[in-house]
Amino acid sequence: MLSPAIHKLIKPAIFVVALVPLAWIIYRTVNNDLGANPIETLNRYTGDWVLRFLMITLAVTPLRKLTGWNGLLRYRRMLGLFAFFYVCLHFLSYAWLDQNFVLTDIIKDVIKRPYITVGFASFLMLIPLAVTSTNAMVRRLGAKRWQTLHRLVYAIGIGGVVHFLWLVKSDIREPLVYAIILTLLLGYRFWTRVHSSQNTVASGTVP
Protein backbone atom coordinates (compact mmCIF):
# COMPACT_ATOMS: atom_id res chain seq x y z
CA MET A 1 0.00 0.00 0.00
CA LEU A 2 2.77 2.40 0.94
CA SER A 3 6.13 2.66 -0.67
CA PRO A 4 9.12 1.19 1.20
CA ALA A 5 10.55 4.66 1.51
CA ILE A 6 7.57 5.81 3.54
CA HIS A 7 7.70 2.70 5.69
CA LYS A 8 11.27 3.60 6.45
CA LEU A 9 10.06 6.93 7.75
CA ILE A 10 7.07 5.63 9.68
CA LYS A 11 9.07 3.24 11.77
CA PRO A 12 11.42 5.78 13.37
CA ALA A 13 8.49 8.15 13.71
CA ILE A 14 6.58 5.60 15.78
CA PHE A 15 9.72 4.92 17.77
CA VAL A 16 10.08 8.57 18.68
CA VAL A 17 6.39 9.04 19.44
CA ALA A 18 6.43 5.98 21.68
CA LEU A 19 9.19 7.61 23.71
CA VAL A 20 7.24 10.82 24.26
CA PRO A 21 5.47 9.46 27.39
CA LEU A 22 8.87 8.66 28.86
CA ALA A 23 10.26 12.07 27.98
CA TRP A 24 7.23 13.76 29.52
CA ILE A 25 7.48 11.94 32.83
CA ILE A 26 11.23 12.57 33.01
CA TYR A 27 10.53 16.25 32.41
CA ARG A 28 7.95 16.28 35.21
CA THR A 29 10.27 14.41 37.56
CA VAL A 30 13.13 16.82 36.95
CA ASN A 31 10.79 19.78 37.46
CA ASN A 32 9.40 18.37 40.69
CA ASP A 33 5.96 18.20 39.15
CA LEU A 34 4.82 14.74 40.15
CA GLY A 35 2.26 15.93 42.69
CA ALA A 36 2.00 15.14 46.36
CA ASN A 37 2.72 11.45 45.97
CA PRO A 38 5.45 11.20 43.31
CA ILE A 39 6.01 7.46 43.63
CA GLU A 40 2.35 6.71 43.14
CA THR A 41 2.30 9.07 40.16
CA LEU A 42 5.26 7.33 38.52
CA ASN A 43 3.79 3.92 39.20
CA ARG A 44 0.35 4.75 37.83
CA TYR A 45 1.75 6.60 34.87
CA THR A 46 4.01 3.79 33.72
CA GLY A 47 1.23 1.26 34.34
CA ASP A 48 -1.17 3.25 32.20
CA TRP A 49 1.29 3.21 29.33
CA VAL A 50 1.83 -0.53 29.59
CA LEU A 51 -1.89 -1.07 29.13
CA ARG A 52 -2.06 1.43 26.30
CA PHE A 53 0.78 -0.20 24.40
CA LEU A 54 -0.69 -3.64 24.99
CA MET A 55 -4.01 -2.48 23.55
CA ILE A 56 -2.31 -0.79 20.60
CA THR A 57 -0.28 -3.93 19.90
CA LEU A 58 -3.36 -6.10 20.11
CA ALA A 59 -5.17 -3.74 17.75
CA VAL A 60 -2.67 -4.28 14.92
CA THR A 61 -4.10 -7.55 13.63
CA PRO A 62 -7.78 -6.51 13.69
CA LEU A 63 -6.87 -3.21 12.03
CA ARG A 64 -4.81 -4.96 9.42
CA LYS A 65 -7.62 -7.35 8.58
CA LEU A 66 -10.30 -4.69 8.59
CA THR A 67 -8.36 -2.22 6.45
CA GLY A 68 -6.42 -4.69 4.39
CA TRP A 69 -3.26 -2.69 5.16
CA ASN A 70 -0.85 -5.53 5.68
CA GLY A 71 2.08 -3.20 6.12
CA LEU A 72 0.84 -2.53 9.66
CA LEU A 73 2.35 -5.82 10.70
CA ARG A 74 5.82 -4.32 10.42
CA TYR A 75 5.22 -2.14 13.45
CA ARG A 76 3.70 -4.74 15.72
CA ARG A 77 6.95 -6.02 17.16
CA MET A 78 8.13 -2.56 18.06
CA LEU A 79 4.84 -1.67 19.69
CA GLY A 80 4.90 -4.89 21.69
CA LEU A 81 8.46 -4.18 22.76
CA PHE A 82 7.40 -0.76 23.96
CA ALA A 83 4.75 -2.42 26.12
CA PHE A 84 7.59 -4.51 27.52
CA PHE A 85 9.77 -1.45 27.97
CA TYR A 86 7.11 0.39 29.95
CA VAL A 87 6.29 -2.68 32.05
CA CYS A 88 9.96 -2.85 33.01
CA LEU A 89 9.76 0.78 34.16
CA HIS A 90 6.49 0.02 35.93
CA PHE A 91 8.01 -2.92 37.76
CA LEU A 92 11.13 -0.95 38.54
CA SER A 93 9.09 1.88 40.04
CA TYR A 94 7.37 -0.66 42.24
CA ALA A 95 10.38 -2.75 43.25
CA TRP A 96 12.75 0.14 43.67
CA LEU A 97 10.81 3.26 44.64
CA ASP A 98 7.87 1.65 46.41
CA GLN A 99 9.59 -1.36 47.95
CA ASN A 100 13.23 -0.20 48.05
CA PHE A 101 14.29 -3.58 46.65
CA VAL A 102 13.42 -5.34 49.90
CA LEU A 103 13.08 -8.77 48.37
CA THR A 104 11.16 -10.40 51.20
CA ASP A 105 8.52 -7.66 51.07
CA ILE A 106 8.21 -7.97 47.32
CA ILE A 107 7.82 -11.74 47.48
CA LYS A 108 5.22 -11.41 50.23
CA ASP A 109 3.35 -8.85 48.16
CA VAL A 110 3.41 -10.99 45.04
CA ILE A 111 2.10 -14.02 46.91
CA LYS A 112 -0.43 -12.28 49.11
CA ARG A 113 -1.95 -9.56 46.95
CA PRO A 114 -4.01 -10.96 44.08
CA TYR A 115 -3.69 -7.82 41.99
CA ILE A 116 0.09 -7.92 42.32
CA THR A 117 0.15 -11.67 41.66
CA VAL A 118 -1.74 -11.17 38.42
CA GLY A 119 0.32 -8.15 37.41
CA PHE A 120 3.60 -9.88 38.18
CA ALA A 121 2.54 -13.04 36.31
CA SER A 122 1.68 -10.92 33.27
CA PHE A 123 5.06 -9.23 33.50
CA LEU A 124 6.81 -12.62 33.63
CA MET A 125 4.83 -13.87 30.64
CA LEU A 126 5.88 -10.85 28.64
CA ILE A 127 9.58 -11.68 29.10
CA PRO A 128 9.70 -14.76 26.79
CA LEU A 129 7.74 -12.81 24.20
CA ALA A 130 10.26 -10.00 24.26
CA VAL A 131 13.16 -12.44 24.16
CA THR A 132 11.75 -14.32 21.16
CA SER A 133 10.80 -11.22 19.25
CA THR A 134 13.79 -11.22 16.91
CA ASN A 135 13.69 -12.63 13.39
CA ALA A 136 16.34 -15.15 14.34
CA MET A 137 14.15 -16.45 17.17
CA VAL A 138 11.16 -16.73 14.88
CA ARG A 139 13.24 -18.89 12.56
CA ARG A 140 14.66 -20.94 15.38
CA LEU A 141 11.26 -21.70 16.89
CA GLY A 142 9.49 -22.11 13.60
CA ALA A 143 6.60 -19.88 12.68
CA LYS A 144 3.94 -22.15 14.12
CA ARG A 145 5.49 -22.63 17.54
CA TRP A 146 6.42 -18.97 17.66
CA GLN A 147 2.84 -18.00 16.98
CA THR A 148 1.49 -20.37 19.62
CA LEU A 149 3.91 -18.93 22.17
CA HIS A 150 2.98 -15.37 21.29
CA ARG A 151 -0.71 -16.07 21.85
CA LEU A 152 0.33 -15.59 25.48
CA VAL A 153 -0.22 -11.92 24.82
CA TYR A 154 -3.97 -12.51 25.12
CA ALA A 155 -3.49 -13.80 28.66
CA ILE A 156 -1.13 -10.90 29.37
CA GLY A 157 -3.71 -8.40 28.19
CA ILE A 158 -6.39 -9.94 30.38
CA GLY A 159 -3.95 -10.11 33.31
CA GLY A 160 -3.03 -6.46 32.89
CA VAL A 161 -6.63 -5.29 32.91
CA VAL A 162 -7.53 -7.52 35.87
CA HIS A 163 -4.47 -6.14 37.69
CA PHE A 164 -5.88 -2.62 37.27
CA LEU A 165 -9.44 -3.64 38.08
CA TRP A 166 -8.42 -5.30 41.35
CA LEU A 167 -6.33 -2.36 42.42
CA VAL A 168 -8.95 0.39 42.37
CA LYS A 169 -10.95 1.07 45.49
CA SER A 170 -14.42 1.63 44.14
CA ASP A 171 -14.33 3.63 40.93
CA ILE A 172 -13.94 0.98 38.24
CA ARG A 173 -14.70 3.21 35.28
CA GLU A 174 -11.15 3.55 34.00
CA PRO A 175 -10.22 -0.14 34.15
CA LEU A 176 -13.60 -0.85 32.63
CA VAL A 177 -12.68 1.17 29.55
CA TYR A 178 -9.63 -1.05 29.09
CA ALA A 179 -11.78 -4.13 29.69
CA ILE A 180 -14.19 -3.07 26.95
CA ILE A 181 -11.39 -2.33 24.48
CA LEU A 182 -9.74 -5.65 25.26
CA THR A 183 -13.04 -7.50 24.87
CA LEU A 184 -13.49 -5.95 21.44
CA LEU A 185 -9.95 -6.81 20.38
CA LEU A 186 -10.07 -10.40 21.59
CA GLY A 187 -13.71 -10.77 20.60
CA TYR A 188 -12.82 -9.84 17.05
CA ARG A 189 -10.26 -12.64 16.92
CA PHE A 190 -12.71 -15.13 18.39
CA TRP A 191 -15.40 -14.08 15.99
CA THR A 192 -13.20 -14.28 12.88
CA ARG A 193 -11.90 -17.65 13.98
CA VAL A 194 -15.36 -19.13 14.51
CA HIS A 195 -16.48 -17.55 11.30
CA SER A 196 -13.58 -18.83 9.22
CA SER A 197 -13.76 -22.34 10.67
CA GLN A 198 -17.45 -22.45 9.80
CA ASN A 199 -16.54 -21.41 6.29
CA THR A 200 -13.96 -24.14 6.13
CA VAL A 201 -16.44 -26.73 7.32
CA ALA A 202 -19.03 -25.45 4.93
CA SER A 203 -16.67 -25.43 1.98
CA GLY A 204 -15.43 -28.87 2.96
CA THR A 205 -18.90 -30.34 2.57
CA VAL A 206 -19.32 -28.95 -0.85
CA PRO A 207 -17.74 -31.25 -3.39
Partner: peptide, 10 residues
Protein backbone atom coordinates in the same frame (compact mmCIF):
# COMPACT_ATOMS: atom_id res chain seq x y z
CA UNK B 1 -5.51 -6.12 48.94
CA UNK B 2 -2.52 -4.29 50.36
CA UNK B 3 -0.30 -4.08 53.40
CA UNK B 4 -0.97 -1.58 56.18
CA UNK B 5 2.38 -2.18 57.88
CA UNK B 6 4.00 0.93 56.44
CA UNK B 7 3.10 4.22 54.88
CA UNK B 8 4.37 6.98 52.65
CA UNK B 9 4.52 10.39 54.33
CA UNK B 10 3.35 12.89 51.74
Amino acid sequence: RWSQASERRI
